[in-house]
Design a protein around this nucleic acid. Structure first.
Length: 409
RNA sequence: GGGGGAAUGCCCGAGUGGCCAAAGGGAACGGGCUGUAAACCCGUCGGCUCUGCCUUCGUUGGUUCGAAUCCAACUUCCCCCA
């Protein structure tokens, strides 16, 4: 199967600037393409997974990937409420975020050989731009009329658009031009909301270099209930194992809506399509098997097989209700336990609830269990006797559980 | 540069001096039903040493016994004019 067909069958393609010409170009030999990442946080989240995996498919098919990190554009990303001083601080912050993201990207994309893939920071060319030169050279290629007519701007225009945001398109288009010149980059991947900006890059390259380059966008991913992907009651679903535990990550995928399973399997795993078709054909309670496959595969991709296996075992323990070794653990010091520790404090400290107050509410609502016993006393205090040597499972609802252990330190 | 308007809890959005931790909706979370799903019903939805106390209604001051509500300045955003 042609890589473009594979991508399409998996749901990775929303729009292409010229599919036939792109295919012809790819059939001539490997091409170089790029995909951008914003350094707004020091970890990527599930939302970023889609472009990463699309890029990974392409790289596996022999094409060269450039992961473009926005060290330059990141500096102007969100102009609201920024002062001079914070801007400076941000420079270090941006660099830190870039380093962290780069390490994460390397899990999915191969950057060991420049012929296969590389990470590039657009700060390399953006930060030293000369304004006048840029205006003459690049600015002259853009029609304000056209920009204003674009759908994306229409909406923003109704609510207000700062000059700096307005320039974002020029910078992004310029990135494409630079990447074409430096690396012969001929395709850009991006979200469909970036369509306008990507096209601007295409136009710029054509005008400056008389060469056709391509755009390939991803569909905007929402869940069956119309929500954005990657939100839980705790916050974003980060790819970083410290910020978002592999166990919880696995749970996130187990809990997806039935209607999303097939689509997610195609997008977020590398399982062959025929196998996904089988999983998708499952009905009723058997859909859980498909969800387990989904959760396992994605967790394996992001956190490795060991963590995925651990999470899988932990997930079984969730329903069985025994103290399984694979649940996440929370340690209480024995000396603290001697004088007694309030259960609600443990809930909050272990991250099962966002606050002590939430824990109280959960207890009142009958949602908290210690071992197999439902807790009814909000002020329940645990002491040494309550926690056996192998720990006790404390759970909030059906989906959050932790094994509480005692330690001596 | 001139004139007008707005800033409320995760989001939307009421509230124009005490009855406001702040209506209503959405999202989310818990319980029930299930399959760790959806739909549906019930409940919760700022924090804490929780029948009470503390901190929130853009920021900083002020008026008042008492302010989300009144005044001043500042910040940001929107609209009209240039």
């Amino acid at each position: 199967m042609h890589i473009l067909e594979e991508l399409d069958a998996r749901g990775f393609i929303k729009q292409c600037s010229d599919l036939d010409a792109l295919r012809a170009k790819m059939d001539e030999g490997p091409i170089t393409f790029y995909v951008g990442f914003d350094p707004t946080a020091d970890s990527l989240h599930v939302g970023n997974l889609l472009p990463i995996l699309k890029a990974a498919h392409l790289q596996r098919a022999g094409h060269r990937v450039i992961a473009l990190t926005g060290g330059g554009t990141g500096m102007v990303g969100d102009p609201s409420g920024k002062t001079e001083a914070r801007m400076l601080l941000q420079a270090e912050r941006v660099q830190h975020n870039l380093d962290c993201q780069k390490a994460q990207l390397a899990r999915f994309l191969d950057f060991t050989d420049e012929k296969r893939g590389l990470v590039v920071n657009n700060a390399e060319w953006l930060l030293q731009l000369n304004y006048i030169e840029f205006l003459r050279d690049i600015g002259s290629c853009f029609s304000v009329n056209r920009m204003l007519a674009a759908e994306g701007y229409k909406q923003r225009l109704a609510r207000g658009l700062s000059f700096i945001e307005f320039n974002y398109q020029l910078l992004q288009a310029y990135d494409y031009l630079e990447l074409f010149r430096r690396y012969d980059c001929r395709m850009q991947l991006g979200g469909d909301d970036q369509w306008g900006n990507i096209l601007a890059g295409l136009d710029l390259v054509r005008r400056k270099e008389q060469t056709q380059v391509f755009a390939l966008t991803l569909p905007l991913l929402t869940t069956a209930t119309g929500q954005k992907m990657g939100k839980t009651h705790t916050g974003a679903v980060w790819l970083d194992g410290e910020r978002f535990k592999p166990f919880d990550f696995y749970q996130y995928w187990i809990n997806v809506d039935d209607r999303d399973v097939g689509r997610f399997l195609r997008l977020f795993t590398f399982l062959p399509l025929h196998q996904i078709a089988e999983l998708e054909a499952l009905k009723g309670a058997d859909i859980r098997k498909a969800k387990q496959a989904l959760a396992f595969e994605v967790t394996k991709l992001v956190h490795g097989e060991d963590e995925a296996l651990k999470a899988q075992e932990g997930a079984k323990a969730m329903t069985v209700g025994t103290a399984a070794a694979d649940l996440p653990t929370y340690e209480v010091r024995r000396e603290d336990l001697a004088s007694g520790v309030r259960l609600v404090s443990i809930l909050a400290a272990a991250g099962l609830t966002k606050s002590v107050s939430e824990g109280r509410r959960m207890v009142k609502g009958g949602g908290v269990r210690v071992g197999n016993d439902k807790v009814s006393d909000v002020d329940l205090v645990l002491s040494g006797d309550d926690i056996p040597a192998d720990g006790v499972v404390v759970r909030v609802g059906k989906k959050r559980a932790v094994r509480v252990l005692t330690i001596d330190a």
